[in-house]
C-alpha cells in the first residue's frame, strides 16, 4: 500500500438546511488516481473544494501529508476559475511568481500545440483551451496532489485526449495523486485506479478499479428476479430488465442460477446514480 497523502476525518458541511457532506471519512494514497462520481448534489465538488482549501467544513478535519506544501497542490475548479482579465502571458507570469516556478522552467509544449496567442485574454479562450491552459499552469507547479473538478466532459475529444495524456504523464513522471470528479467516462476507463461514488453527502461505493468487474455484475432478463439478491438499480426496457448487483459474490451465482454479466465503469456509475433517483421516486 502506498503512503497516505490525504486523510479526511468525519467531514461535515451544510448549506443552510441542506447537508452536503455528512460525516465523510476517507483516505487517499500517494500516486493513485481516484475518480469520484455520483448524482448532482451528492457532495463530490464540495469535498474536492474542501480538499483544495476553497471551502471550510463545519466540522471534521483534513490532514495533508506534511511533506506536501501548498505550492504542490493544484486545483481546477468546475468553473476553471482564473483571473479572466489577465492575458495568457500575464497569467503565466503571475502563476509562476506565486508558485515559485522559474519562467524558463515553464513547459509550454501543451500550449504550443494549441497555437494560442499569448496576448489574448483568458476570458476569450474556449472551454477546452481554457482547461488545457489551466492544466499547463498547474503542471508547471509539478504538483504532488492534483484536484480536477468536472471539466473533462466539457471539452472536445481532441483536447480531452491532450488533457488526459498530460495527466498520465504527470502521474508517471511525478507520482502525483490525482483526484477527479466526473460523470462521463469516455476515454477515461484506463485512468482511475479507484472509484468512489457519493450519495447524500457520503460514500456508498469505494472500490479499486481492478476489482470492479468482480464486485459488481448485472443480470439481464425479461422476468422479475427472485431471491435475496442485492440489486442497487433496475433498468427497465420494453424487452428486458437489467438488474445491477452489488456486492457480487460467487455464492450468489451458485445459489440463484442467474447469469451474472460483467459491467464497465460507466455502467457502475450509472447504476448507482440511477438507483439514487429510483429511491427518490419511491
Amino acid at each position: 500500500m502506498n503512503k497516505e497523502i490525504i486523510q479526511v476525518n468525519e467531514l461535515c458541511l451544510d448549506y443552510g438546511k441542506r447537508k452536503v457532506l455528512d460525516n465523510v471519512s476517507v483516505r487517499f494514497e500517494q500516486g493513485k488516481t481516484v475518480l469520484i462520481a455520483g448524482n448532482n448534489g451528492g457532495g463530490k465538488s464540495s469535498l474536492l473544494k474542501c480538499l483544495a482549501g476553497v471551502l471550510f467544513p463545519d466540522s471534521g478535519d483534513i490532514r495533508i501529508d506534511e511533506s506536501v506544501s501548498k505550492e504542490k497542490i493544484g486545483f481546477i475548479s468546475d468553473r476553471m476559475s482564473l483571473f479572466e482579465d489577465f492575458t495568457l502571458a500575464r497569467g503565466i507570469e503571475f502563476h509562476s511568481g506565486m508558485f515559485k516556478v522559474k519562467p524558463a522552467d515553464f513547459d509550454r509544449s501543451l500550449l504550443d500545440r494549441l497555437k494560442l496567442d499569448m496576448g489574448m485574454k483568458i476570458r476569450d479562450l474556449s472551454m477546452g483551451e481554457r482547461a488545457v491552459y489551466h492544466l499547463s499552469l498547474l503542471l508547471s507547479q509539478k504538483p504532488e496532489i492534483l484536484l480536477v473538478d468536472e471539466i473533462i466532459h466539457t471539452i472536445d475529444p481532441y483536447l480531452r485526449e491532450l488533457f488526459l495524456d498530460a495527466l498520465i504523464g504527470l502521474i508517471d513522471d511525478l507520482n502525483t495523486s490525482v483526484i477527479m470528479v466526473n460523470h462521463t467516462f469516455t476515454d477515461m476507463g484506463r485512468l482511475p485506479e479507484r472509484v468512489l461514488i457519493m450519495e447524500n453527502g457520503g460514500f456508498i461505493f469505494d472500490e479499486q478499479s481492478e476489482d470492479l468487474t468482480g464486485k459488481m455484475k448485472k443480470i439481464v432478463t425479461d422476468k422479475e428476479i427472485k431471491g435475496d439478491i442485492p440489486v442497487v438499480f433496475k433498468n427497465e426496457t420494453p424487452i428486458y430488465n437489467e438488474y445491477y448487483v452489488y456486492p457480487y459474490t460467487d455464492e450468489l451465482a451458485a445459489g440463484t442460477g442467474y447469469e451474472f454479466q460483467d459491467v464497465d465503469l460507466t455502467q457502475v456509475v450509472k447504476s448507482f446514480i440511477g438507483g439514487y433517483y429510483a429511491k427518490k421516486r419511491i
Binding site: 476559475s81 483571473f83 479572466e84 506565486m98
Partner: peptide, 12 residues
C-alpha cells in the same frame, strides 16, 4: 472575474 476560487488556492 470569476477568480475567487483561484485566489483561494494560491499559496498564501
Amino acid at each position: 472575474q470569476g477568480g475567487i476560487e483561484y485566489l483561494l488556492t494560491l499559496p498564501l
